[in-house]
């Protein structure tokens, strides 16, 4: 519990990103606070994933600032941003299929070890120390995967792989977690578990940015939602208000149903 809506963990200001002539993100501003779940929604191609790539540093932005805990991070390379506490999951699960769940999650710590001040001496210590085992064990328990830690990811059902990715993202104790459409392809009980998990992580004091299509899930989880279309912010407010906003409705209309949104037509 921090001091009210104090300084947000993440503050994106006037961010613009172009691919050649295409403007993917246009003068966009939004923020995310500690312990909050902020939703970022918009139709396909609105620029949501590009925005995540900009915040995590995979893409370099053309204009604007990205402040993380008060410092501008827009010039840091991706790995440095991850080390100071910005982690993410991917829209299309990106795990090492051949490796076990444990090995995948412990990789989330590898960067942490390099970042540590005791530096290169630590680098020479095996990752199988009790400390790592405990940390990874906790993360796996939190996402409910303790029973499969030795299983090769390839043999896991698709729905559970999302949770492996989340475990890998939270194992280093991030300050900001970006979830890129985590509910895609999940069954109803799994979505329920996901909602609970996201709330748990937020309760630990992590700022969460949830990129989602599904307004129903967003309504359940988030207090605040930012809607973007064509790279521009068209709405910020409560999920309920978003559903009645004419600009939002227009952006979504014809793409898919606004509410109850399992958009089966996609993919």
């Amino acid at each position: 519990m921090s001091k009210a809506p104090a300084a947000p963990v993440l503050r994106v200001e006037h961010l613009s990103m172009r691919f050649g002539g295409l403007v993917a993100v246009d003068d966009l501003s939004f923020s995310a606070a500690r312990g909050d779940i902020t939703a970022l929604i918009g139709p396909n191609g609105a620029g949501k994933s590009t925005l995540v790539a900009c915040i995590t540093g995979v893409l370099r932005i053309d204009a604007g600032t990205i402040r993380f805990q008060g410092n501008g991070v827009q010039n840091l390379p991706a790995h440095r941003r991850a080390r100071i506490g910005i982690t993410r999951t991917f829209q299309k699960v990106r795990l090492a299929d051949q490796l076990t769940v444990y090995e995948n999650v412990v990789a989330g710590l590898a960067g942490h070890w390099f970042a540590n001040s005791s530096g290169w001496l630590r680098v020479l210590r095996p990752l199988s120390t009790r400390e790592a085992v405990t940390t990874v064990g906790q993360a796996l328990e939190r996402v409910g995967l303790s029973d499969v830690s030795g299983t090769v990811v390839k043999s896991l059902p698709f729905g559970r792989r999302h949770f492996v990715e989340i475990a890998r993202a939270i194992v280093s104790g991030p300050k900001l977690l970006l979830l890129d459409e985590p509910a895609t392809g999940l069954t109803e009980p799994e979505r329920e578990r996901l909602s609970q998990l996201v709330r748990d992580i937020a309760a630990l004091g992590c700022a969460i940015v949830l990129i989602e299509h599904d307004l129903e899930l967003v309504g359940r989880l988030c207090d605040r939602v930012t809607v973007i279309n064509h790279g521009r912010r068209i709405f910020t407010g409560t999920p309920a208000a978003a559903q009645n906003d004419p600009a939002v409705i227009e952006a979504y209309l014809g793409v898919n149903q606004l509410i109850g949104g399992r958009d089966d037509a996609r993919d």
Binding site: L99, A107, G111, V123, L124
Partner: peptide
């Protein structure tokens, strides 16, 4: 060691690797 983990993470997915804090 971390460096070996980083190699294997790199082999599997370079972008994911960067998002994990690996240089």
């Amino acid at each position: 060691l971390p460096v070996g983990r980083a190699w294997e993470a790199l082999r599997e997915d370079e972008i994911a690797c960067r998002s994990l804090g690996i240089n």
